[in-house]
């Protein structure tokens, strides 16, 4: 008994420390007072103000565009890359996987600064450079999601399709594609999450003209803390949460064998 309740308390504490800050943020976003400690009653005022602010809405649309476009293009390029890597010999595969993993582990701020240095040499910072940067850091996530699916769908199923008279293109679309589709989708969703989440890389590659939600929150917070930003952060958290739920649902749905 003692042991069991100790276990429960321990678990409760962990979740408390994990989620309490976010809960506080969400609660404060509905607080009818600018105070960080006093509860002034429930209000949707901060959300109203949020949606009536043109600069915030612009940042919102920019974020949606960057997130979707970078995830789409990264999914396309990443899937093609995974197909290429899968066709390589073992040695080449190891080299390529190492090369794709390094940006994944690299500190975001280093990636951001180095991309900025590269971009300013050739072009002006803006929407394009943010998009290119996001595509770049998203590609490894797609590769890491698609490659295991390719490995699972053994090469012999592709050969079997050819053997039964399929052209290489038909064999790919009927045999390989359906088998890797779950990986492609989770790669796409993960890219969206990463892109939505990103601050450092965006901050260094965006230049002065544009803002995404995360850089917007940062600049606004520097001017002084306004409760609209709590509301904005809450929205951002919810979007990320929804993407995550999709991602997990997709994974478990695929694992269950269908009878």
């Amino acid at each position: 008994m003692v042991r069991k309740s100790a276990e429960r308390i321990y678990l409760f504490l962990i979740f408390l420390f994990l989620y309490l800050p976010i809960v506080v943020l969400i609660v404060l976003s509905f607080n009818n007072s600018k105070s960080k400690v006093h509860w002034g009653g429930f209000t949707l005022n901060w959300y109203k103000r949020l949606f009536s602010s043109s600069s915030i809405m612009e940042a919102f649309y920019t974020t949606i565009f960057i997130t979707l476009a970078s995830a789409l293009i990264a999914t396309l390029l990443g899937t093609l890359a995974a197909l290429g890597i899968d066709a390589m010999k073992k040695r080449g595969q190891a080299v390529m996987l190492g090369a794709t993993n390094i940006p994944l582990l690299n500190a975001d701020i280093v990636t951001g600064i180095s991309m900025m240095l590269l971009f300013v040499r050739f072009t002006r910072l803006g929407m394009n450079t943010v998009l290119i940067a996001h595509i770049t850091f998203n590609i490894p996530y797609v590769i890491l999601n698609v490659l295991p699916k390719l490995k699972q769908s053994s090469r012999t199923t592709y050969e079997a399709a050819l053997d039964l008279g399929a052209t290489p293109l038909y064999a790919f679309s009927k045999i390989i594609w359906p088998q890797i589709l779950p990986g492609v989708l989770s790669g796409f969703l993960m890219s969206m999450t990463m892109s939505l989440d990103d601050f450092s890389v965006t901050y260094f590659t965006k230049g002065t003209g544009i803002n995404t939600l995360s850089t917007m929150i940062y600049t606004e917070m520097r001017k002084g803390i306004r409760p609209e930003m709590y509301a904005l952060s809450t929205i951002l958290f919810l979007i990320a949460l929804i993407l995550l739920l999709f991602l997990n649902y997709g994974k478990t749905a695929h694992k269950e064998p269908h009878h």
């Binding site: 012999t156 050969e159 053997d163 039964l164 008279g165 052209t167 290489p168 064999a171």
Partner: peptide, 30 residues
């Protein structure tokens, strides 16, 4: 000649059935 243009068929060591298709769909593929 490419494999898909040859008048012969193969039974592979690890069966190489298409996991996302039913048995009838597998057999009907060719």
């Amino acid at each position: 000649l490419a494999p898909n243009e040859r008048q012969l068929n193969t039974v592979f060591q690890k069966y190489a059935l298409f996991p996302h298709m039913s048995i009838a769909e597998n057999i009907a593929f060719g």
